[in-house]
Design a protein around this nucleic acid. Sequence first.
DNA 1: TATGAATGAGGCTTCATTCAT
DNA 2: AATGAATGAAGCCTCATTCAT
Lengths: 192, 192, 192, 192
Amino acid sequence: MATSRREQTKAQNRETILAAAKTVFATMGFAKVTVRDIIRATPLASGTFYNYFKSKEEVYQALRDEIALAVRPRLREARLAAATGEEFLAANFRAFFTFVAERRDPDVIAETSRFRMDSPEVLAGFAELREDLERAMESGLLPRANAALLASAVSGIALELAEQVKQGADVETVTTFATRLAMGGISGLARS
Amino acid sequence: MATSRREQTKAQNRETILAAAKTVFATMGFAKVTVRDIIRATPLASGTFYNYFKSKEEVYQALRDEIALAVRPRLREARLAAATGEEFLAANFRAFFTFVAERRDPDVIAETSRFRMDSPEVLAGFAELREDLERAMESGLLPRANAALLASAVSGIALELAEQVKQGADVETVTTFATRLAMGGISGLARS
Amino acid sequence: MATSRREQTKAQNRETILAAAKTVFATMGFAKVTVRDIIRATPLASGTFYNYFKSKEEVYQALRDEIALAVRPRLREARLAAATGEEFLAANFRAFFTFVAERRDPDVIAETSRFRMDSPEVLAGFAELREDLERAMESGLLPRANAALLASAVSGIALELAEQVKQGADVETVTTFATRLAMGGISGLARS
Amino acid sequence: MATSRREQTKAQNRETILAAAKTVFATMGFAKVTVRDIIRATPLASGTFYNYFKSKEEVYQALRDEIALAVRPRLREARLAAATGEEFLAANFRAFFTFVAERRDPDVIAETSRFRMDSPEVLAGFAELREDLERAMESGLLPRANAALLASAVSGIALELAEQVKQGADVETVTTFATRLAMGGISGLARS
DNA sequence: TATGAATGAGGCTTCATTCAT
DNA sequence: AATGAATGAAGCCTCATTCAT
């Protein structure tokens, strides 16, 4: 009753554009995409785009928001369930890698580049992870090393390993590896 | 003197373009840069650009080559001097971070983003580091963990911490941090 | 009315471009014409051109099609009405020269050159004439001389005389001349 | 003694450019050729071109002149030897077709188009033929039909049949055909 | 004279955005 | 709100021509 026919269409168009943009960003990389590319991946008219978004940047932002919304509950669960620093890290890594794995596009595997790392999915999860790390240090769950540096470093681990996951690496393997490395360093790995 | 004034001018123009491109890439990010942007950052005529390079990609490549040439000797020294895995890592991290620090542009600090991470400097040093890690594992200097994952992870650490260096963090501090984290993990950090 | 004002404008623009192109091709010769030249001969914006045609070649093709459509019925009539080879030739020559005469642009007369011979009008009519000749020989209406050579030769006569028509020569005079020459040769002309 | 080293070089460069231009015109068609194309087909520097010619048009003119110089003696011979109109025509056609045949480039056969008809060779011979016809009518060797029309028509025959020669037709066959057609018309052909 | 780099006009095309319908 | 043609700025690149050496 609340949504008239028109409103439905409106919501649908927005989703149509977002879905098209997602595909197009994944295929061409954000930088190369033009508004026209997005429109072309859509049955809509060019003018219609501007009823919903001002630019491709705005679309991108919307995608990030949408995705972040999907990721957050999962990370929260992981966080709440963690009793130790190790569990906490593992859970977060796992959540992130799972997230990436779910979104890996079989058609796009290989020919991955640094430039593709800017996909909304990855960045969204990445930001979450970082914030979580900072909170974990604040709360004492992780040792209070230099917070900024540690967050960066762990993020870096996650980010680069995400590429491996994108290339097809097993989520659980990578999660274990990341957690061990982060907790015990390379020497810790050797023991495994 | 083998070089006529003509040849000097020619070499100078090439350098002019490279220098302009470097600034422009750093300022706008590679993806957004147009050939015109590079030309505009130059006193040269538009056609002149094409006497030296076919595209912005070619300029980029030239910058990378130039930089790689500067980095390589330093990394080689570090590598040769290293007796232990820890020394090896520290030397490599230090070389990389120093390199980044030397090139941090005071004007550009702040507003850094993932998109800026594709600067030729970073990528060049990054590739070197990665190869070095792989060789170190092959030679037994570092434990033979999953090579691909370890290289990715350590690269990730370096890459993200490089951002901190770019933002002004002290090279020695970051080097120590990175080495400890890599060698002993987070638990190792706590002891410091 | 099936056509909205919108559609009218659209059709009008197409015609505007075609008309401009026709003039421009006639004035400068196809080879020298640039897309910009066509646009400049138009009140339209540069981008608009590309809503209708991909290149000057496409415009040219459209002009040829349009013209061919206009010529064909006339030639068919002439062909059907012809009882003898002479009538057939005369009718075809007449149709062709009339066609050219109708399209001669008073502003462009003089300074004609071989290079101008590639105007769509001439080529379209020319191709028709040639095919007709071949069919006439096949059907026995004209003697079965070396078909390829005869077609070429008669086409050549028509093509060059068309230039005279373009310069202002009378259609009927030229038609009679061409027919007599073709049927009886130079000796035949002498009797006239 | 008259030609110093420098003058030799000078003459040589001119020839180098002309030869290159000839090839390039034949390959790409006059219209599409740029001065750069000509220079590129040469070992010379771009500036050197302008020491000899102001534009590609001037080169083209020079080629025509050069060729006309080669054709003229041959046509004069043919003309002088002719006792009847028929002999006159045959001799002229033969000279023209031979000329074309000698210059047919085996690599370029096929893919001939009207647009290629503007090669300097053809146009030069063509102009000669036309002038000759006019003179022959003036002198009474040929019947005084409408001179302009007859010249055009015979030129057209020659021009189009030249294409057949270019495609590989036998010179003598085409000469005989052209002469018979011109003298006796299509009906004359039938008797042969 | 020969050279060839520099110049900037100008061609081609695509793009973001507007706006009448 | 949806449409899609029109617009003209702006990117890319090549060209003819000049001019210092």
